[in-house]
Amino acid sequence: MKFDRFDRLIIVFLLLTIVGLSLLLSRTIPERTTKIETRNMERELAAQARQALLDKLYSPVAASMQAGQMQEALLKLEEINVRYPGEAHGFILKGEIFDRLGVPDKAAASLVQGVKLNGDYIDKRSSVSRRDLITRLVDSTLPGAVSAYRNSPVNAVLKENLANLNYLKSRLAGGCE
């Protein structure tokens, strides 16, 4: 390929543009670092603010749970859930209460709703993680749920319970979602 004068002119302008772009980019590096740090801080602030709000909102429920009054905790939770019906934390607490009350099928159903709304509850590294609770629930109840369903495959309740436990098992196993 032979370059004529026009080509050479274009190449010179291309090189000048690359130099200009590099200069601009190098000048933006300090600004970029500050912005990224600010964004990370905002993310952290939002997470902590959410946690603080949830703690405050659900504190009556947590107090009843700590006192071992699970029925009362459930009633208080229902009151809050009327105001915030789509909040994952409510479903997770409900799952915890049902688990402590020894009603694993209802616990699984509530935990499924919570995890579907907010996957943070099943993440290992999340501050709100309930992974240990969910793992224990799945490990202890899944074998029984499988055999119960096999004995009565037309029972819709058993089928739904098994589906819920399998969903939680699948989320615990990981994958890209």
């Binding site: 899944l142 589906a163 399998n166 699948s170 196993a173 994958g175 979602e177």
Partner: peptide, 13 residues
């Protein structure tokens, strides 16, 4: 290697 249909990572039924 965990053979099975249920509870697999990132899968649905």
């Amino acid at each position: 290697f965990n053979p099975g249909f249920a509870g697999q990572p990132g899968s649905h039924q």
